[in-house]
Design a protein around this nucleic acid. Structure first.
Lengths: 341, 341
DNA sequence: GTTTAGCACTCAACTCAAAAGAGTGCTAGC
DNA sequence: GCTAGCACTCTTTTGAGTTGAGTGCTAAAC
């Protein structure tokens, strides 16, 4: 069942208003600001209909209406990317004048600017390494019995793991092992390497060193499940929204923001190839704080994803602005990252 | 000018009370709970005296008194480490049953338990690398023209920097460079290396590669000023304290907590060799949020500091508990770290 | 001289009823 | 189908009145 054009217009206007004021919207207000050609009584009738269809809620009989989550979903589905103001563009690009040095640097800058421009809490989640392609792998002797496992992938350099090597391993042998590592392990996705069966691929003469290769594989498996970097910015912004003047709400919100892993999981659901994803309220994403929405966007070059960025805030956040800002930043980063390469 | 014993007792009791209730304390209450041998009128006279000495403040004429920062300072200066309850000890040690794997792991666990047990926001700041001693330094070829600079110090492995090397550098030459690097740069403090003058120490035959050595030095300088890891936990706790039910206060607090660098700077002032440091209010540490105190402790083995941990919370925090918990955790970590080695 | 009982005074906090105001639903007429 | 008009509902605001906690001071007791 589809809504009449007038109902659509009323509903859309109401949501638009509510996003700004956070107050129940009255028939009179809608009339004055959006539909001067109809009387408030007519609009009241429509509102009443929309209410029984589940789009609106009345806090008490003598109050205006507030949108339900269904109404927000309707509203958001109509949204297009709207152009940003010159001020906003300047504000955003001002943060990216310096050369970017690392993915973490990008993430930190993005969250800062995102939170600043949208007045919401921003989140950035780096992709986990599973899909990366190992390009170089090498054991670097540190002391006689220890070596660093150095892994260079297409997107990262991993070097956080030190393993033990036989005390009597000569430089020559190490060289040989390194050659074999490169031969066997590159170029392959980290994912694929998890299931590599050494028994099948190792030469007879290397069987004595099988333990060493096993250790390297173990390191690769660790790398692949390495915690993604997750950063947030602007958690305090939430206190500016009247719906979070209630202490318990605010506290719950802050606690969710602090649980980085849960945050990351909320982003994970997006992997449907969508550039942009909007989740409204707990019905659509159960881990969200009460009364919150999450808007996320992929960042990366072409199909090559580096991670996700997004904002969390009250269900009545300014979706128009958020969507445009995410769109703009996404493109900006794509440009910056491709210049880098 | 020193306080009479009775004044001391009254002042101490008043602060003790205020820490629990966050309400102005009346003469009658002090009498009933702490000084039954004197009448409330007597205590009122003493309170009046303490007020004119700057220890107490009266919100309005018909209210009890609240302690000034001077009173908290007095109170804290009397504090001793008091034993923890068995429950608290169990709660703390329960978090450290698993083997610790890295400094960051320790920090993350510490902040979690610290915030949980004290009901305050906890902070951990890793020491910067300046004082670390370089033990191994090595260039690892990644591609023909690129090499990773690998630095192993007594506390860390740094491997975040890739430099360019001459395309025509042979493996042999690289080996030679590595030998020289080890010869010239180890074992030295990262600090010392900042001022190393290559002209004086490089052999004639290596002058052609001076640029390369310069690049490595540059990397070391970067490493030494590398951002310390700073993590916080339990920011939401602040909302449970009535002094932060005011939105603006809460917001200011959260914003300070998010500015990790500023947080770290507050810890930096502690380098007077003290194990424990208490800063009460903005008078004592201007970067603190309004009405907050900071209690910090060094962690490390013997004189060898690894970083600092601490809590931030309202000036009327439970110093007794905080001090004991920090003391206990400090010792626990020292034990864990020395087992590691 | 110190302590204390007693009392007048102050001021925030609470209660309660009345008034104001915003907004609706419904009806009757255009 | 639309709207003017009005009765009704419910929240919010206001202000007067009351309560109660707590002080400061004085004068008497120790």
């Amino acid at each position: 069942m589809t809504l009449s054009d007038r109902k659509k217009k009323i509903l859309y206007s109401l949501v638009d208003d509510y996003i700004v004021t956070a107050e129940p919207v009255s028939s009179k207000k809608i009339q004055e600001e959006h539909l001067p050609d109809y009387s408030s009584a007519t609009i009241r009738n429509e509102l009443s209909a929309l209410e029984s269809m589940g789009y609106l809620v009345q806090p008490h009989t003598s109050a205006g209406r507030i949108p339900s989550q269904k109404a927000f979903r309707f509203y958001v589905d109509q949204l297009m990317v709207t152009p940003l103001s010159q001020d906003e563009i300047t504000a955003i690009e001002g943060h990216f004048v310096d050369k970017i040095s690392s993915m973490q640097d990008v993430m930190s800058k993005v969250t800062t600017v995102l939170s600043e421009v949208t007045h919401l809490t921003s989140v950035a989640v780096e992709d986990s390494a599973t899909g990366e392609v190992v390009q170089t792998i090498k054991l670097v002797r540190l002391t006689q019995g220890n070596a660093l496992v150095l892994v260079v992938s297409d997107k990262n350099v991993f070097k956080d793991h030190i393993i033990e090597i036989p005390d009597n391993l000569s430089d020559n042998d190490l060289e040989k092992v390194n050659n074999w590592l490169n031969h066997l392990f590159t170029p392959k996705k980290i994912d694929e390497l998890r299931t590599l069966n050494l028994d099948e691929v190792l030469d007879e003469e290397l069987k004595v060193l099988q333990g060493l290769f096993e250790d390297v594989l173990k390191v690769l498996r660790e790398v692949s499940k390495k915690k993604k970097e997750i950063i947030t910015q602007g958690a305090a912004q939430i206190l500016d929204y009247p719906e979070y003047s209630d202490k318990d709400n605010a506290k719950q919100f802050l606690q969710v923001i602090e649980q980085k892993q849960k945050l990351a999981d909320m982003f994970a659901g997006d992997d449907n190839g969508m550039e942009l994803n909007i989740k409204i309220g707990r019905e659509e994403e159960k881990n969200l704080p009460d009364g919150c929405s999450l808007v996320t966007a992929k960042i990366g070059i072409n199909k090559n994803s580096y991670g996700n960025i997004g904002v969390i805030g009250p269900v009545r956040m300014d979706y128009k602005k958020v969507v445009s800002v995410l769109d703009h930043i996404g493109k900006l980063i794509e440009k910056l990252l491709s210049e880098e390469e």
